[in-house]
């Protein structure tokens, strides 16, 4: 949708999923809006727009953030990772594969957020317990799955790293 164009705009340059991307933004635009509307990154969803649900989680300089709470202009020259950045052609990551095998996907609306957070957890190169993972993903809501299969998927891939 067209946003009002009367405010002063700035040029935003980021490394989005490994590629340098540039766009014009307004000072009040959130990272969420810029990702979805300017860069057409549709895996990043929203359910509250005010920081309560975690559905808009992306990695900003390798750290998980709620993109609806981040002003786009603060991400100048930052690295941003979304599900689009971890999938290439037909090749799924181990975590994506685990989500499918465990049945961690129902409506799929939260899936991008949990995958990105799971990706972050696995990248810690640290071994976590079931309840630690349960605690780490507590900030994202899923209304469909009951969480169990999501936790199990992340746990399985995490454990594999130490086998």
């Amino acid at each position: 949708m067209i946003k009002e164009g009367t405010r002063p705009t700035k040029t935003l340059s980021v490394i989005l999923n490994g590629q340098k991307r540039v766009t014009e933004i307004q000072s009040n635009e959130t990272l969420l809006d810029v990702l979805r509307n300017k860069f057409q990154i549709k895996s990043v969803k929203a359910a509250c727009w005010v920081g309560d649900c975690g559905i808009c989680t992306v990695l900003l300089d390798e750290k998980p953030v709620k993109s609806c709470l981040v002003l786009a202009q603060e991400t100048m020259n930052c690295t941003i990772t979304t599900v689009e950045g971890i999938t290439h052609n037909d090749k799924l990551t181990e975590l994506q594969d685990a989500f499918i095998r465990h049945g961690a996907v129902q409506c799929g609306y939260c899936t991008g957020a949990f995958l990105i957070l799971g990706h972050y957890i696995i990248n810690q190169q640290q071994r976590f317990t079931f309840s630690e993972i349960q605690e780490m993903i507590n900030g994202i809501i899923c209304r469909c799955t009951g969480y169990l299969q999501i936790i199990e998927s992340i746990l399985e891939v995490n454990e594999k790293q130490f086998r």
Partner: peptide, 20 residues
């Protein structure tokens, strides 16, 4: 596995909210 699983884990599944 679900028919839509791959679409959903790769962020391709389209929802009404995405239609612009």
């Amino acid at each position: 596995a679900r028919k839509d699983a791959k679409e959903k884990v790769s962020g391709l599944a389209e929802y009404a909210v995405d239609i612009d």
